[in-house]
Amino acid sequence: MSVASPSTEVPRVNPQKRNILIRRISRAPWWLLVLALLIIWFALSVHDKHPYPTVFRAVKQGVVTTIWVSLVAYAVALILGLIVALLRRSSNFIVYQMVTLYVEAVRGIPTLVLVYYMALAFIPKVVSLGNDLGEQLMTYRLVLPVLGTITFHSLGTWMAEFQIRDVDNAYRAIIGLSISYSAFLSEIYRAGIESVSQGQIEAAKSLGMTRWQTMRLIVLPQAFRVVLPPLGNDFIAMLKESSLVSVLGVQDITRRGQTYAASTFTFFQVYNVVALTYLVLTLTLSLAVKTMEWYLDRGKQREAD
């Protein structure tokens, strides 16, 4: 008499999970792996071939300058762009029109032209006006009932003797880049602020919040999550456009490469290294921005899957 063995059920494969796995594999950054392997292969193949070791050392000295200029200029642009975005929401007609004029005018000027203008035209003019004002302050006296006579001789002397050459070209370039990007960042801020629903603003007003409290506690925290990825992408653009400071003699990556290539006529090797250096920097930042976007959108991705 045979005993029937219990039937073993084979678990069925969920086709939906299989499709999700295939979709994730197809979306993986395989291009990044290929590009990283090519960069590593190139670096290993030329690291001991003349003149690449010398070029790498020369360009490496400009990496710190490039990163420093980009960080400082972008930090200033972030603050200035936020101020401009908030002023564009002002109910004052004159303030709105003046700030809008600033944004449209700056956005219509190429970054290189603006860097030249700030470094060679605007800043020298401001220094010249400061010299004239300093000469007037040297002989100016302010008489107050309690404090007596106040002189501005020391301040006037400093302003009168201040020279254009005292303003480093790196700071001139930073001012130009900051003003150029502040106009674009203000539009990103404005889009993020407007993404917050009007109902939340009305609810905050009904609770007795002031306009500043509503902006600080309700609008800006939500807008920050929206504008964070575009701000990261704009920093990558700022890093690349920081090469424009080389036209003012700032010793960044591009300028270091130009100097070495002009003295040795090894343009092919030098600009291979310059391009590779910028590519590594921008790819690293792009990967960081992608990671940040994935972290912010992980909830939406689960719903889509």
Rank of each mutant, 00 (worst) to 15 (best):
M1C: 12
V3K: 13
A4V: 12
A4W: 08
P6A: 15
P6M: 08
E9H: 10
V10L: 12
P11Q: 10
N14D: 13
K17H: 09
N19Y: 12
R23F: 15
I25V: 14
R27M: 15
W30S: 15
W31C: 14
A36C: 15
L37E: 11
I39P: 13
W41C: 14
L44C: 10
L44R: 08
L44Y: 09
S45P: 05
V46P: 08
V46A: 07
H47W: 13
P51L: 03
T54A: 10
V55D: 04
F56L: 11
I67F: 09
V69Q: 01
S70G: 14
L71V: 15
A73P: 02
Y74P: 11
A77M: 04
L78A: 10
L78H: 05
I79M: 09
A85R: 00
L86T: 04
L86G: 00
R89L: 14
R89T: 12
S90G: 09
S91N: 13
S91L: 10
Y96E: 14
Q97T: 15
M98Y: 14
L101E: 05
V106A: 02
R107K: 14
G108C: 03
I109L: 00
T111Q: 07
L112R: 03
V113D: 01
L114M: 09
V115A: 06
Y117T: 08
M118D: 08
F122Y: 05
F122H: 02
I123Q: 04
G130V: 08
L137M: 14
T139A: 14
T139K: 11
T139D: 15
Y140R: 13
L142A: 13
L142Y: 13
V143K: 11
P145L: 09
V146S: 14
T151E: 15
F152M: 04
S154V: 15
G156K: 11
V167L: 08
S178F: 01
S182M: 02
A183K: 00
F184A: 02
F184P: 00
L185N: 01
I188N: 02
R190M: 10
E194S: 10
V196N: 00
Q200T: 02
Q200L: 05
A203P: 04
A204E: 07
K205D: 04
G208T: 01
R211L: 03
I218Q: 00
P221S: 03
P221V: 00
A223Q: 00
V226L: 02
P229T: 01
P230H: 02
P230V: 05
G232P: 05
G232Q: 06
N233Q: 08
I236R: 07
A237L: 09
M238I: 07
L239N: 09
L239W: 07
L239Y: 09
K240H: 11
E241R: 05
S242F: 05
S243I: 05
L248A: 10
V250Q: 06
Q251C: 11
I253V: 13
Q258T: 12
T259V: 11
Y260F: 11
A262Q: 14
S263E: 11
T264A: 08
V270P: 04
V273F: 00
A275T: 12
T277W: 01
Y278C: 11
L279K: 03
L281E: 06
A288Y: 02
V289F: 01
K290E: 06
K290Q: 07
T291Q: 07
E293N: 05
G299H: 15
G299M: 10
E303Y: 07
D305V: 11
